[in-house]
Design a protein around this nucleic acid. Structure first.
Lengths: 355, 355
DNA sequence: TTGTATGCGTTATCAA
DNA sequence: TTGATAACGCATACAA
C-alpha cells in the first residue's frame, strides 16, 4: 500500500542519507567507477543493499548531463511499413541490446520534411549515434547534405553517402544481380524477361550491371523487348502493383519468355499474380526470381526463389560501425568512414525450375 | 570549414551572451512561456534571430531535469518481426509525431527476461508513458504484475490487464469470429474445418465463442473431427508451419470439408500451402479464411479473405489513451483505466467463393 | 577510504 | 520588462 500513488524517484542522495555515506561514495559504488577499488567492502555492500531495497534506479537524463552519453541510438527508417525494414530493425535492436543501448525510432514515411524534423528531434535528444535506413529518401540531395553535417556519428544502410563522414552497410548488388541471372541460366532459361529497378534507386544500376556482365560472359544476348522498367514511385506496395502491371503488359504483347527476373520480391509477387491471372502457372510454365528475401517470400504460394539480402546482419553491422565511430569520437581519435559490403545469397524455393 | 570538427553544443547561455540578455529571458522567449507576453518585441526578435543563426538546439535531457517530461514513449513489442506488430508501430509513430513525442523501442523477443530488462531501461530513461504490444508475453503472470506496479502511465494492445491501472485497446474477437464463420456460411459452406488458436492466447477463446454462437444461431453443428487446435508455440512463423501441418493431417485422414477457417492469416497461408501441395485448389475446391489482415494477405496467391484487425488504428488509439493518462498524472487528477474495443472488418479477397 | 564542491543546460521563482 | 538565483540528479576533481 503506497501512501501516495505517485511516489518520487529515489535518488543517490536518498541512498546516501539512508546509508550515512555521501552521494559521491554512492555514485562511485553503484557505477563501479575506478575509485570503487578503494571502497571498503562493507561500505560497498551496505550501499548496494540499500539501493536495491529502496528501489534506486539511475536517472538516465541526469546522468547524460554529466557524462554526455545518452546510451541511445536514433534509428531513422524511410518507411517502417516496408518489409525491407523489419529485419533490419531487428538486427539493430538485437545488437544494441547487450550494449545497454536503446533505439529511438523515427519513421520518415519517405518524406523529406519528416526526415528533417525527426533528425532535429533526435539531435535534441542527444542520441549517441544515428543509423539511417535509406533508399528513396536519399534520392533527394539535400537530405544527404543534412546527414553529412549532422554532428553525430552516422551509419547508413542501403545507401552510400559521398565523403568520409558517414559509414554504410550495403549488399553487393552487382553480385546479387549475377546470382539471379546465373540461377535462371543454369536452369536452362534463355528467354528471360527482366524488370529493372527504378532509375533513381541506388541499387538499380549495379544490380543490372551484374546481370549484363553475366550475360556477356556466357555470350547470351539480352532481348530489349523483354526488359521492363519500374517507375520511380515512392511507396511500399508500389512495386507489387507495378510488377503486376508490367507483366500484364508483357503478356498482352504476346512476348515469349520462360523466366522472369524481378527487381525485388514484391515486384516478383506482383508478376506471379499477373501470370496466374493469365493462366500461366509458376514455375511450370514460367520461372520467377525475386530479390531481397523479404519475410513474405517464404510464405507465398509458390514460395519465391530469390536473392537474399542479409538484412538482419546488416542491422548488426551498422550497430558495430556506429559504435566504432562513437568510441572514436569519445576518445577524440581520428576516424574515417567505413564501408561494409555484404554478400547476397541465392535462396532456391519453388518459383523456379529447369526446362 | 570548422576549426573543430567536434563543436560544442550551443546553449541558452551562449545565446544570452550573444544578445546581451539573461539566460532566463532567453528561455522565456524560446519556449514561448507565459511570461513571454511581457517581453519587448525587439528583445524577442533579437533572441529568436540569434538563436537561429547560432544553431541553438534545446537539450532535451537538461530540459527533462526541470520539467520532468521526456517527450518520449516506451513502445514494447513482443516481437517486432511479427507482421502483427508493424502496422501497430506505424500507428503509434504516426500519432506520436504531431505531439512532438518520439517512441523508444523495445523488443522483448517473446522472452520474459528481456521484457523485464527493457522495462527497467525504459524507466531509467523516464519515458512519459508506455505502450505494450503483448500477446504470448502475457501468458506469464509475473509480467503482468510488473506492469501493474510500473509507476508510468501504461496502455496495452492486444491484451487486457486486470485492475484499473492499465488501459488497453483490443479488437472485438468474438465479433471477428462471428464475421469469419458467417461469411463462409453465407457462401453456402457447411462442412467447415477450423483451426482454433493456441489455448493460452487471450484471443483464442472469444474468437471461438463467436464462431460457436453463430453456429448455434443458424442451427449448424460443428463437427468436432474437423476442429483442430494450434499448439502453444512462441514464434512468429510457428503458426504458418502449424497451419501447414494440421491441414496436412486433416487431408491424410480423408476428412471432407469445403472450407477452412484459420485462427489467423499465417495459419491460413500454411493451410493453403498444404492444400496446394495435395492438389486441392483454393478457392475452387476449398475456401480459406484467415484473421488479422496482415500485410502479406493481400499479396499472396490467391489473395486471402480475412477478418481485419484495424492495427494501425489500434496503435493510434493506444497513443490517445496514454496521453490521457499522462495528462491526468501531470494534473494530479483522478484517473482510471479505459478499455477500447475496436471493430473487426471482413475483407473479401480471392481465397473464398460460394458453392 | 570517503566527503565536499562544482557544473552539466534548463526552467521557475522571486526580485528589481 | 528583465535578471539573479536555485534546483533538478549525477559524476568527477580535489580535499581530507
Amino acid at each position: 500500500m503506497d501512501a501516495k500513488r505517485k511516489r518520487e524517484q529515489v535518488t543517490m542522495k536518498d541512498v546516501a542519507k539512508a546509508t550515512g555515506f555521501s552521494p559521491a561514495t554512492v555514485s562511485i559504488v553503484l557505477n563501479n567507477a575506478p575509485l570503487a577499488r578503494y571502497i571498503a567492502p562493507g561500505t560497498r555492500q551496505k550501499i548496494e543493499e540499500s539501493a536495491k531495497r529502496m528501489g534506486y534506479r539511475p536517472n538516465a537524463m541526469a546522468r547524460f548531463l554529466r557524462s554526455k552519453r545518452s546510451q541511445s541510438i536514433g534509428v531513422m527508417m524511410f518507411d517502417v511499413t516496408d518489409p525491407f525494414c523489419t529485419p533490419i530493425l531487428r538486427g539493430v535492436e538485437n545488437a544494441l541490446y547487450p550494449l545497454g543501448y536503446l533505439p529511438i525510432l523515427a519513421d520518415a514515411h519517405n518524406q523529406r520534411e519528416r526526415f528533417e524534423r525527426y533528425l532535429e528531434m533526435l539531435l535534441e535528444r542527444h542520441v549517441d549515434g544515428l543509423i539511417v535506413v535509406a533508399n528513396w529518401l536519399f534520392v533527394d540531395i539535400h537530405v544527404l547534405a543534412d546527414l553529412n553535417k549532422a554532428e553525430v556519428p552516422t551509419v547508413t544502410i542501403g545507401w552510400e553517402i559521398p565523403g568520409n563522414r558517414v559509414s554504410f552497410a550495403m549488399v553487393d548488388n552487382e553480385a546479387g544481380g549475377r546470382l539471379a541471372i546465373e540461377h535462371l541460366y543454369q536452369l536452362g532459361h534463355r528467354r528471360i524477361a527482366m524488370i529493372r529497378g527504378p532509375k533513381r534507386l541506388i541499387d538499380s544500376a549495379p544490380r543490372w550491371r551484374g546481370i549484363q556482365k553475366f550475360a556477356q560472359s556466357v555470350r547470351q544476348e539480352i532481348d530489349p523487348s523483354l526488359v521492363l522498367q519500374l517507375p520511380d514511385v515512392f511507396d511500399a506496395n508500389a512495386s507489387f502493383e507495378q510488377g503486376y502491371r508490367l507483366t500484364e503488359e508483357l503478356l498482352q504483347k504476346k512476348k515469349k519468355f520462360t523466366a522472369l527476373l524481378a527487381f525485388d520480391d514484391l515486384t516478383a509477387l506482383g508478376a506471379i499474380r499477373a501470370l496466374a491471372k493469365a493462366g500461366v502457372s509458376v514455375p511450370e510454365q514460367c520461372s520467377v526470381i525475386g530479390f531481397d528475401d523479404v519475410a513474405i517470400s517464404g510464405l507465398s504460394a509458390p514460395s519465391l526463389t530469390t536473392v537474399r539480402q542479409p538484412l538482419e546482419t546488416m542491422g548488426g553491422a551498422a550497430v558495430n560501425m556506429v559504435m566504432e565511430a562513437i568510441k572514436a569520437a569519445q576518445e577524440n581519435r581520428e576516424w574515417s568512414a567505413a564501408a561494409h559490403q555484404l554478400h547476397p545469397e541465392l535462396v532456391i524455393r519453388d518459383s523456379t525450375r529447369s526446362i
